[in-house]
Design a protein around this nucleic acid. Structure first.
Length: 266
DNA sequence: ATGGCCGCTATGAGCGGA
């Protein structure tokens, strides 16, 4: 008898800054039901571990691994598949006091879910922390990951890498999220071996993942592309699509971010 | 010129977000 096997299924990986997982729980469940990602990376859970609504996921057949913190930050990886080799925070150096980084392996892909610090304002203490945080991630990748292995770095990078990722580059020039040092720090990830999956499929401007709650920014498409999926070459080669899923940003009481999802051939 | 919206917090004015 000749060996037979079913064709392997594609892998869909999504990222979404939900701005409170409790407030947005119904949105998250609706997104899972409409887009059935195989991996969903969440940022800004804004909840301590004991109050994480874990049963809501488990009832629907999803596993959850999370790094939680009261009030602020918080990241999670959600998947119907086993979530293996979970690692929280940086591998080296002092422990990060903020819950911003969780990594795990799902179906052979290393998934690194990051909530990069916002940085508040160029020159502030928070900005210095942001740059240091980004550099620490570069160091961790260099020492503990392999650009020849399938890995995706995804999450809210809080950086718009290029002017075409910004609705008004003049107004944002040199400001936090767009400043040279932040962009250079993100370029450090690219130099290590990561590729921006979205830009493999979309060259045009005007495509964003975040819109301010104020001043009808969504309606005017005044946004930034700051939520990303960046993959190593062997995984990037398998990427057949990467899109912002704007619809959830139009739902009642939305997050200010929309999900972004990439699909990989098996 | 400023803030404009949102979620959180031992609930109420302030912080952080982006």
């Amino acid at each position: 008898m000749s060996p037979r096997r079913a064709p392997a299924a594609p892998l869909a990986v999504a990222t979404w800054n939900v701005n409170s997982v409790r407030t947005r729980l119904d949105h998250v469940m609706r997104f899972l039901g409409e887009h059935y990602p195989d991996v969903l990376c969440l940022q800004e859970l804004k909840v301590e571990a004991k109050a994480l609504p874990r049963e809501a996921f488990e009832r629907r057949g999803y596993n959850v691994e999370a790094a939680c913190q009261k009030t602020y930050n918080g990241v999670a990886i959600v998947s119907p598949y086993p979530i293996e080799d979970v690692a929280v925070g940086f591998r080296e150096g002092k422990q990060d006091p903020e819950a911003r980084l969780i990594a795990a392996t799902v179906r052979g892909v290393r998934v690194v879910c990051a909530y990069v610090p916002n940085g508040q304002a160029v020159g502030s203490d928070k900005y210095a922390y942001k740059l240091e945080w980004m550099q620490r991630l570069t160091t961790d990748l260099g020492r503990h990951a392999d650009p020849k292995a399938p890995l995706v770095l995804t999450g809210d990078f809080n950086v718009a890498p290029e002017d075409r990722d910004v609705h008004d580059p003049k107004a944002w020039e040199g400001e936090v999220l767009c400043s040279g040092p932040e962009r250079e720090a993100a370029e450090g990830w690219r130099a290590w071996g990561l590729e921006d999956l979205f830009r493999q499929h979309h060259a045009e401007g005007g495509l964003y993942s975040w819109w301010d709650y104020r001043q009808g920014a969504l309606h005017k498409n005044h946004g930034l592309r700051i939520d990303h999926l960046w993959a190593t070459a062997p995984l990037a080669k398998r990427c057949t699509a990467c899109d912002v899923i704007k619809d959830p940003r139009t739902w009642d009481k939305p997050s200010d971010h929309a999900p972004v999802m990439a699909v990989f051939d098996a």
